[in-house]
Every structure is written in C-alpha cells, then in structure tokens.
Write a protein that binds this DNA or RNA. Sequence first.
DNA 1: CCAAAACGGAACATTCGTGTTCCACTACTG
DNA 2: CAGTAGTGGAACACGAATGTTCCGTTTTGG
Lengths: 191, 191
Amino acid sequence: MVETGVRTRTRQAILDAAVVVLSRDSSASLSEVAREAGVGRTTLHRYFPERSDLVQAIGTFTLERIAVATDRAKLDVGPAREAVVRLCREYFELLGDVLSLVFTDPQFSSGLDWHEESESDLALLALVRRGHQDGSIDRGLTPEWVQQALWALLYAAWAFVRECGVSRHEALGQCLRSLERMLHPGDQATG
Amino acid sequence: MVETGVRTRTRQAILDAAVVVLSRDSSASLSEVAREAGVGRTTLHRYFPERSDLVQAIGTFTLERIAVATDRAKLDVGPAREAVVRLCREYFELLGDVLSLVFTDPQFSSGLDWHEESESDLALLALVRRGHQDGSIDRGLTPEWVQQALWALLYAAWAFVRECGVSRHEALGQCLRSLERMLHPGDQATG
DNA sequence: CCAAAACGGAACATTCGTGTTCCACTACTG
DNA sequence: CAGTAGTGGAACACGAATGTTCCGTTTTGG
C-alpha cells in the first residue's frame, strides 16, 4: 500500500470529481461521483471506504488550498485593504467549485479545525483589524462580518460564472471592485 | 375538500416547518419535517403527496414573499441606490430561513418562473439601470452582478446571525452598510 | 349532539444508496 | 515471462426514506 504515482493520481481524480458533482448536488450518490471520475464504484470505496471519508478528505483538501492562497496573498505587505483584495483574488483562482461546497454545506466544514480555529481565518480577522488601524478599511465593519461578506461575494462571483455564463475574469473583476468599494472608508453618511 | 380554516393553517404549519428543517439540511427526511411541524407523517402526505410537491410549494411560497417585499420597497421612489437598500431590508425581514434555501439549493428554484422570468427580478435589474442613469449606482457594476451580490450579502447576513450569534439588527446593519458602499459611485481608482 | 372532516399510528411494499465480497482482467515491473 | 498492484463488474445484505393503505380517535361545525 505504498504511495505509488498511480494511486495518488487516481485518488486526486476521485477527489476532483467529487468536488464537481457534490457542488452541484451535495446529496448526490457515490455512483455519480465514480462515473464522473471515470472509475468503478468499487475503486472509489477502495480509496474512501465510507462517504464520510470522502467528505472529510474534501475538507482537508480545501483547508490546504486555503492555506496556500493565504500564503500567496502576503497579507502583511502593503495597506490592509489591498491585501484583502489580493486574498480574495487568490481564493477565487485556487478554490473554484470547492467554494460552493464549503460555503453552502456545513458537512464539509465540520470535524476539522473549522471554523473558529483555522489559522487562515485568524489571519484574515487580524488583517481586518490592521486595516482599521491603518485607516484603509471602514471601521464600521466588524472583522467577522468582513469575513462573511468576503466569502459571500466570492460565492456570488462563482455563481455568476456558472449561471450567467460570464467569463471568470469578468466575474472576478466585478467581485473585486465590489469588495474594494465595500471596505473603503468613505465620507458617506453613516447608515 | 373545501378550503376550511383548519386546512390552510395546517398546511402553513407544515410549510413553515419544512423551511426551518430543510434550510438546516436540504436532504432531511420528511419525518423530521413532520415532527418539526407537530404533525403525523400521514398528515404531511395528505397535503403534499410527494416530496417534490412540498419543495415546489416552498418555491411558490417564496416567490410570493419576494413579490410582497418588492412591492413594499417602492422601487420607483427616490434615488435608485436607496431603493436597492430598501429592497434589501425588506428581503431580509420577510425571507428569513427561506433565504438559505433558494440561495444554496437549486431544487427550490427550478420548475417555476425562476430565475429569468420573475417579475421581481426584472424590476431589480431595471432599478439598477435607473441607478446608472441617475448616477446613484456605480456604472462599473452590471445589473446582473448587483443582483448576485445583493443575494449573496443577504445570505451572509443571515449566516452571520446563525453562526456568529449576532443580533438580526446588527447583522442587517452591517449588510446594508456594505451594500450602500458597494453601490456608491466613488472617485476611487478603477480596478 | 351528531355527522363529516381531519388527524395519527401501525403496517407494508418498494426503491435507492451504501458497504462488502468475490473474481476476472489489465498493466506495469523485475 | 511471471508476479503483483490496480482496476472494474456482478452480486449480495442491509438500512433508510418514501409512498400507500387501513383503521381507530379527535376535532370541527351545523
């Protein structure tokens, strides 16, 4: 049961297929996942004995991606608001379909470091606080809310692509512009 | 089989319970829905013979709520941006748990006027275009994107309440502030 | 008060997803 | 070429959800 190249490749194919299928319908059957992966159901069970194993693997997989994105965004460089926007861009590009899963379905975000303990989440919260201090982020928005809104806009951008047939680039543009303006501390009347 | 008061009341109780239960887990069993409604599973099947009937009823129910909210917001009064914010507030207050359903699960928004044909949706799109003309909404944001983002922020606000234990009022405040700033045509550098 | 309406529980058949086992086939590798 | 890892299909048992029927009980309303 060594980690040969074939095994890791098959495993990844199943994982990718699972993300695609389950992001469309989180209660899809394992047969559908296997078919999407171009793999027999038997093989799928060889890699992930139970459904919960597959779900948890997706969760871990996602956490890794998030960590990478957070790292790439270099959150401690430059004004905080710009860093948040960079982070959003990285998320968009690295997460794809996974987004729908973690955002809409609680089953993928349970049983792990989620949601309070994740290092990346804490980094984002700290970043927003820095933005409050350096004046680049509206002090009327709490860090926790910014986090929520960031994910929501990301999901919206992805849905924009899937449902409205907009290009990824166009959707990301609208998303980042919205985020930028949302965070910007303006002199508009306070709601 | 006349429309006695008892029947409508029972039907509504089931519908409400279904929204609560299914918004937590869209693949919950009908037994759970019946229990939440304080009703026997037999009775539930009397009103909604198949699961799909219940799902569709929720869809229709939601459309009605949306129509009411759109009406109350008086979209043709005042600056367009303020009208959008009013609409968002009405949505938040009238939709509650239903939000999670229509937003995350496609099964509730299929088989109806959804999504392209709904009168309320068209009204929102037209409203944004009016905002482009009267200069109250950033011309860099397309009407379709504003629609997506509006729903996303609404969902974020609701999740904020459910997951972070924030008060409805506080969550709505953050949501509306974000929306307002997002739409505002500022003089910030263009992304 | 009495009949009709509405309800709840038990039981049943059916379907579907799941998890498992067994066996034959293919591909790589020494 | 032989052996082994990997695969896929068929078949099976099991449980859960669904949809239906039947019947006794409660509630409603004229």
